[in-house]
């Protein structure tokens, strides 16, 4: 217990660092995932190719490697940003590939006729997607999006290795101060649980509110 009470501000700092990384990366991942999923079902061939390449590259790259590429690679092209921003970029882009595939599978659960009916009424591709297909896809993708974002919250730990303040990274300071390593990690785990269980609860609520009864 001492570990927590003695170092509460350190834990809190790490905790909110992880929360911040999770929230910003999730937002980026959802927006990018949405755009890429739209690309992957677009009537224009080059958009589909772009979406497919995006998913193939990001989904199949180890996240640590991606962090290295962003943190060390982008500055070489003159793009120098705070490490936190780089971390959000890496996490957000990486997760967007998974979000994209989740959304796309959701889109595929919507019967073809729904899109055909919308198009036969003169609705454009984006109107059809936005007003007819995605709202129905959204209901089926709530649970898997929740899982993906929970994975993102835990993946954010990698950012700690790149001197971004986050929860897991606090153990370094604490072990240097000579605290019991087991209890240090127990409280870190509790911190992650608070975050992931909150995400679970949010998505449970969304599912209750919007999910389809079958």
């Amino acid at each position: 217990m001492d570990v927590l009470t003695d170092n509460f501000s350190l834990y809190a700092e790490g905790f909110f660092g992880t929360v911040e990384l999770t929230v910003y990366s999730s937002a980026l991942a959802l927006v990018l995932g949405f755009v890429m999923a739209s690309f992957r079902v677009a009537p224009v061939g080059s958009f589909r190719v772009f979406g497919a390449v995006w998913v193939a590259v990001l989904r199949n790259t180890p996240l640590t490697l991606l962090f290295f590429a962003v943190m060390l690679g982008l500055p070489r092209f003159g793009l120098v940003l705070p490490f936190e921003v780089f971390a959000v970029l890496a996490l957000g882009c990486y997760t967007s590939a998974f979000i994209c595939e989740v959304l796309r599978s959701g889109i595929n659960t919507v019967p073809r006729g729904q899109g055909e009916a919308a198009r036969s009424l003169g609705m454009s591709f984006s109107q059809t997607l936005g007003a007819v297909v995605l709202p129905q896809a959204f209901r089926t993708v709530i649970p898997p999006i929740g899982s993906t974002l929970i994975a993102l919250a835990k993946n954010s730990a990698i950012a700690g290795a790149f001197s971004v303040t986050e929860l897991l990274g606090t153990y370094k300071t604490l072990s240097e101060l000579g605290y019991n390593i087991v209890w240090t990690f127990v409280w870190i785990a509790v911190g992650y649980l608070i975050i992931t269980l909150t995400i679970s609860a949010i998505f449970h609520f969304l599912e209750k509110r919007w999910g389809v009864a079958r």
Binding site: P111, Q114, E116, A117, G122, M123, V132
Partner: peptide, 20 residues
């Protein structure tokens, strides 16, 4: 094409009403 489709209505075998 979308403009032209708006001028030609279509009724499907499986109705295809927007379920949501």
């Amino acid at each position: 094409l979308a403009r032209l489709r708006a001028e030609v209505g279509m009724v499907f075998q499986s109705f295809n009403l927007f379920a949501h």
